[in-house]
Amino acid sequence: MDESAGVLAAARWPLAVGREADWLRELTCDDGLTGFMPPALPDAAWVLHSMYEHQVGPTGWSFVEYRRRAGAPCLAYYSPLLHGAEGFDNLHIRTGTLADALVLYDHPDEDGWTPSNLWPRDRSWVLCTDYDLWVTKVAGPPALIEALLDDAELEAVRLPWAT
């Protein structure tokens, strides 16, 4: 890892309080062992491969709208299994912005692991990536799911039970 990338990641995504994920725990009725797998909010899709392979914003958004959304405060939850945790009382969460989410790959305190969940503070959508799956579940508003499904550069499939 590039040392400057690690410093940038640590500065832009500091630790947050564990109770920030309480709403996910309640929503999923889960302990978050491998991440919280959310239900449709009200829609959902699987996005194959990596979300970070796609560098262009969704079509139909103005540059101003894209930057507004990219600057949204977000939270990232890491599965306790990734850190050798024995308990689930103090969840491992970082806070930053969507625009800076790419630096999570270089975070010096995460031993190369990526977050299990990522969501904005307004809780309008949530991502869930299990460490051993090649897909990311995205749950959120229909407009978000449609943008993912309509994007020719992404492989995405609507979850049939979400409609």
Rank of each mutant, 00 (worst) to 15 (best):
M1S: 14
E3V: 10
A5S: 11
G6I: 03
L8W: 11
A9Q: 07
A10S: 14
A11K: 15
W13N: 06
W13Y: 06
W13I: 04
W13T: 01
G18W: 00
G18F: 02
G18E: 02
R19P: 00
R19I: 03
D22I: 09
W23D: 07
L24N: 05
E26M: 14
T28H: 05
T28P: 09
D30V: 05
L33Y: 14
T34K: 13
M37Y: 06
P38Q: 04
A40E: 07
L41F: 05
P42E: 11
D43A: 15
A45L: 07
A45W: 02
M51P: 02
M51C: 11
E53P: 00
H54I: 12
V56R: 11
V56L: 10
T59H: 14
G60F: 04
G60R: 06
W61T: 03
S62A: 08
V64D: 10
E65R: 11
R68Q: 12
R68P: 00
A70S: 08
A70Y: 08
C74S: 08
S79A: 13
S79R: 09
L81K: 12
L81R: 10
G84P: 02
G84V: 02
A85S: 01
A85F: 00
E86Q: 10
G87W: 04
G87T: 15
D89I: 01
L91V: 05
I93G: 04
I93H: 03
R94E: 02
T95V: 10
G96N: 01
T97P: 01
L98K: 02
A99E: 09
D100L: 03
Y105F: 14
D106L: 06
H107A: 02
P108H: 08
P108T: 06
P108R: 08
G112L: 07
W113C: 13
T114Q: 15
P115M: 05
S116C: 14
N117D: 12
N117L: 15
L118C: 10
W119R: 08
R121Q: 14
R123V: 06
S124E: 13
V126T: 11
V126S: 05
L127A: 15
L127C: 15
L127F: 13
C128Q: 10
C128M: 11
C128L: 06
D132P: 01
L133F: 10
W134T: 11
T136W: 00
K137F: 03
V138K: 03
L144W: 05
I145A: 07
I145E: 03
A147V: 04
L148N: 04
D150I: 08
D151C: 12
D151L: 09
A152T: 14
A152G: 12
E153K: 11
E155Y: 11
R158S: 06
R158V: 01
L159S: 03
L159W: 06
W161D: 08
A162K: 05
